[in-house]
Each structure stands twice: as C-alpha cells, then as structure tokens.
C-alpha cells in the first residue's frame, strides 16, 4: 500500500525534522534509499527545483517524491503527511498560547524572544547573502578582496533595498521584478 507508506513516512519526517526545509534532507535521503523511490542524483535535481520554485522547500520535495512514487494522489498524500504533525502540534500549542499569552511569565518570556527572533531573521539574511553576494570560496582561493563580492548581486541588493525603503510597495512586486532581472542578466 504505497499511499499509506508515503503518508506515514512523511508524517515521520514532519514530526522529527526540526528546523527549515533543508533539515528534512537527511531524512529524505534515508527514505529514498530505503524504498529505492529514486536515485540520489534525482533527489539533488529535485531539491534544486524545489528550492527555486515557490513554496516551502520541504513541502515541494514531498510533493515531488510523492508524485514520482504514486502520481497525483501520491503527491497530495505525501504533502499531507508532512504537514499533518505541524497542524496537530501547532493547533494544540496555539490553543494554550491563546489561553496563556496574557500570563506574566509568558509575556516576559516573549519580550526576550522577540529580539532573538530579529537576530534569527537577520542571520537568515546573512546566510542568504553569503551564498548569493559574498564569494567566500574565492577569498580563500586567491586572497584578493576584489573577488570577495559578486558585484552584480551587490548592485541588485542595493537597488532593491533602496526601492523597498523608498516606495514601500508589496513584497511580491520586488520578488517578481528581481526574478525577471535574474533571467535577463543570467544571475
């Protein structure tokens, strides 16, 4: 019963993958070898596509593997399996959060958490920038600072950032325009 297996295996990934979509990768690697659903190379290709298409990476990968294994129903079932633990756990937490978010202990805990979340979000931006704008490996290779920045990307960052601060348009606009720029100028 391939559908049941897809649901249960992805339910397990959803339950134990703590963190972003990439945290699920080792689990997926295990899965596809265990059931020989696809080769590692296919998995890598699929991750490249899952990363560069809309939606959470984990969800995209689940849909991909599910579809390859069991067609359209397979895709839906694998994705539902991956999301189910989130829905169950978060619904329980949300219920209590709603009840206790006025509690002084909870309030003061979150007063500490919020600046840490800002740090978390800033670190996500930093990691992204490291991949796209700063060429760390170049610096190690030839020790020249001039190769440290990818100037094309840096220029785009400055333009988009200025536009975001100045025009305050919907984020979707910046994302769409950048996608077009990326295709035209081969980023």
């Amino acid at each position: 019963m391939v559908y049941l297996r897809l649901f249960l295996e992805f339910f397990k990934v959803g339950l134990f993958a703590l963190g972003g979509g990439l945290a699920a990768l080792p689990f997926l690697q295990d899965l596809i070898t265990k059931y020989s659903w696809m080769t590692s190379k296919e998995l890598l290709n699929m991750i490249a596509i899952s990363e560069s298409t809309p939606g959470a990476i984990g969800i995209n990968t689940a849909t991909f593997i599910g579809f390859n294994t069991g067609g359209i129903p397979g895709g839906i079932i694998a994705t539902a399996g991956l999301a189910a633990p989130s829905i169950i756990i978060i619904t329980i937490i949300a219920h209590y959060f709603k009840k206790f978010n006025q509690h002084p202990l909870v309030e003061s805990a979150f007063s500490g958490i919020r600046p840490a979340v800002a740090g978390l979000i800033a670190s996500a931006a930093f990691e992204l920038a490291q991949g796209g704008i700063l060429n760390l490996q170049y610096l190690q290779l030839n020790k020249k600072l001039i190769n440290f920045f990818d100037y094309k990307s840096l220029l785009l960052l400055l333009i988009v950032f200025t536009a975001v601060r100045k025009f305050k348009k919907h984020p979707i606009i910046y994302i769409t325009v950048s996608a077009l720029i990326g295709i035209i100028f081969k980023f």
Binding site: E51, S52, A125, L128, A129, G131, G132, I133, S153, L156, L157, V160, F161, V164, Y174, I175, V177, S178, A179, L180, I181, G182, I183, F185, F187
Partner: peptide, 11 residues
C-alpha cells in the same frame, strides 16, 4: 530567477 529572488529576499 531564483538567484536574483534570493537577493530581493535579503533586501
């Protein structure tokens, strides 16, 4: 497209 989108997301 994605490489450029990532930069927009950083901004």
């Amino acid at each position: 497209a994605f490489a450029a989108i990532q930069i927009a997301v950083v901004a």
